[in-house]
Design a protein around this nucleic acid. Structure first.
Length: 287
DNA sequence: CTATGAACCTGACAGC
DNA sequence: TGCTGTCAGGTTCATA
């Protein structure tokens, strides 16, 4: 779920509430939450106790806290993960999977995850400080070091549909089903248009649209349809009110008035305006 | 390399 | 009330 804006909201919360505090205790309530930590829950806990996070980092949808031990606590929220900063007397959440307590006795950090697609792990980092499980993830469009020219060339070199390419976290990270559809709507591109058929100017327009929509969503605290996507204090963002395509099937297009349609795509859904984003006549995937 | 589909989970909702 | 089927913001692996 959470895509770049929602994960960035969480990162800022961690920066604010967790960085600089020494970890005193770790409780893993559900071993699946640390399945990526191959040495197991007790090793996971042992590598955290006594350490302090130096900062809160993010690349795409991955979060990590560089620790003063040299390792990093990596978190991925999957489809339903939350990181909550809670007073210790707050009753346990139904889907509480792990809890970190701190030496200062203040609020604890809880990993709550209904569907358990997310998880935590303590990992080594590469010389640049990037955790090993994140090294294969491309930079995201809001990263100052994102290389626009390289992205334009790489996307146009893909022999696949443009939305597939946008969702490939090894090509560009942070974009999921919501922001892919919103970016394509803004750029007036059909999701199945062959990536290789796009002009460089089309790709730049698409990239600009992705940046704009994610920046606007971030300013509104992210997109949240229910209580599943919240910041570390449990508050929802409200960008869902600003969506032009995603989830808008049957609603009039905010640009031309045609009714937005939903179509099956990659075992999920794509939303588009049939008039602004028509199927390409000869620019389709098979062209 | 690309393309599907399935798997991993729980819960909400629609329809009968 | 309860059953069945469908759907959900993601990632990864197996099979063509």
């Amino acid at each position: 779920m959470p895509e770049l804006p929602e994960v960035e909201v969480v990162r800022r919360g961690l920066q604010n509430w967790v960085v600089g505090r020494r970890i005193a205790g770790v409780d893993v309530a559900h071993p699946r939450a640390v399945r990526r930590h191959l040495a197991g829950p007790s090793d996971f806990a042992a590598r955290l106790v006594g350490t302090t996070a130096r900062s809160a980092e993010r690349r795409g949808k991955y979060l990590w806290l560089p620790l003063d031990s040299g390792a990093a606590l990596v978190a991925h929220l999957g489809m339903s993960g939350q990181l909550l900063v809670q007073p210790s007397d707050t009753p346990d959440e139904v889907h509480l999977r792990a809890r970190l307590t701190f030496a200062d006795g203040g609020r604890e950090l809880r990993f709550v995850d209904q569907r358990t697609f997310g998880g935590l792990a303590v990992e080594e980092t590469d010389p640049a400080g990037v955790p090993l499980s994140v090294v294969h993830i491309a930079r995201d469009p809001l990263d100052p070091a994102f290389d626009d020219d390289a992205f334009v060339a790489a996307l146009r070199g893909r022999r696949t549909g443009v939305k597939r390419a946008l969702l490939d976290q090894a090509l560009v990270s942070g974009i999921g089903n919501i922001y892919a559809d919103e970016s394509l709507w803004r750029a007036k591109v059909h999701y199945d248009r062959a990536a290789a058929s796009l002009r460089a100017s089309d790709v730049r327009r698409l990239l600009g649209a992705a940046r704009a929509v994610m920046t606007e969503a971030l300013a509104q605290g992210g997109t949240s349809f229910d209580a599943l996507y919240v910041n570390v204090n449990g508050e929802s963002g409200y960008f869902d009110r600003s969506l032009d395509a995603y989830g808008q099937a049957g609603e009039p297009c905010n640009r031309c008035g045609a009714l937005i349609v939903r179509e099956p795509f990659m075992n999920r859904s794509s939303f588009r305006c049939p008039r602004c984003q028509p199927p390409a006549r000869h620019g389709g995937r098979r062209a």
